[in-house]
Design a protein around this nucleic acid. Sequence first.
DNA 1: TATGAGTAAACTGTAGACAATAGCCAATCC
DNA 2: GGATTGGCTATTGTCTACAGTTTACTCATA
Lengths: 225, 225
Amino acid sequence: MTVRGLPQGAVPRLERPGPLRERVYEALLELITTRALRPGQHLVESELAAQLGVSRQPVREALQRLNTEGWVDLRPAQGAFVHEPTEEEADQLLTVRTLLEAEAARLAAASAGPSGVEALEELCARGERAVLADDVDGAVAANAEFHAKVMELAGNTVLAELAAQVDRRVRWYYTPVARQRGKQSWIEHRELIAAISDHDEQRATAVMRAHTEHTRRTYHERERD
Amino acid sequence: MTVRGLPQGAVPRLERPGPLRERVYEALLELITTRALRPGQHLVESELAAQLGVSRQPVREALQRLNTEGWVDLRPAQGAFVHEPTEEEADQLLTVRTLLEAEAARLAAASAGPSGVEALEELCARGERAVLADDVDGAVAANAEFHAKVMELAGNTVLAELAAQVDRRVRWYYTPVARQRGKQSWIEHRELIAAISDHDEQRATAVMRAHTEHTRRTYHERERD
DNA sequence: TATGAGTAAACTGTAGACAATAGCCAATCC
DNA sequence: GGATTGGCTATTGTCTACAGTTTACTCATA
């Protein structure tokens, strides 16, 4: 007899601890993105290990991964430092993000079905509600989900993984900015949905490009404050 | 007194062996790309460590990095397996490569100066000579350098790093193919140089897109053999 | 006071040892 | 006879210890 007969979810799939390095990785990433760990800060393995209640090994492994993904700089024989984004790098990152998101929009327009469009509209409505309710966190979350959904509809896993990384870093650099862009952002989302619904690849690309480009402009305007 | 007055590179920065994990990483990557380690093969840490004459630790760290970059799959509590590329994934990867290279071409066209164009022509000539001499390895190398140079002229570090990763994996998947595309490839390169020299962003994008697209077609034609 | 060597502390890089887990095969029970 | 259970083996996950570097500081000296 196999397990097949059991009702799904009868066994709560008792949550596996998973490799420690994973959890350390996520914990550190959380600390970095929330700026509990500041850019330029020296991360000492033994300190982190003690603080997290694990040995140095998992911490090392997590730091190495963070290094390859650009979150920390690993200077040999000296240790890990939280990456300090430069203006130039932030701009380059936005360029890449624009590129990836625009391609995702194009692919989504090419292949998305009615159910996909519907899901996008649902998310869009949720975002608009959040904006109206001045629920900033909710709006940001809905925004992330919206973009993720577009990426999913594009159906390109490689593209999605790259975009996920780039996106998270962009969000880190631009956290002060993201909160400013409210209503306008969702109007643009509506346009994007329309383009995808029409299977108009060119328009979808253009709209998404303009959309992310607006974010960049908002960022540079911030400089004047 | 600061170091600022010193000419760049006056100090040869006496080269250190560098961390073991780096060398292990490169060694393993070499073994994978040359297919000495076959896709799907189980990589046992202790074996690799013994074979390379180091302890398990650097091997682990190298494997983790290879994992995040998509070269090996790391199944928990079971070990590392050389990644097995699927048809679909290869195709998606090519799509992304096309995208990144095309953007690089556009940026290069926007900002490249005469010296950059000259460097490209030099590389192009070298590639053509290699093709005429039936020097396949030389031609492949020149090709890689050509694309790298375009990327350099684009002046976007983030884009360059992403493209470098994607490129290397593409070359891994398509090694049997790359060798077939000889003369035609360099004609297209010439066109690209012309577009860059003219600062014609649109044409540069289009040429590069067509160029990488040809590679994909060649790949799918291979299926018929 | 400025300079330089010398020294000590802190941290990383590497190695080796132990514990935990998944996979496999044989023995056992219905 | 087939499935299940129990133990065995191989391999990974984690921890501890030690060696090698780098940095910062102290103190003697010109």
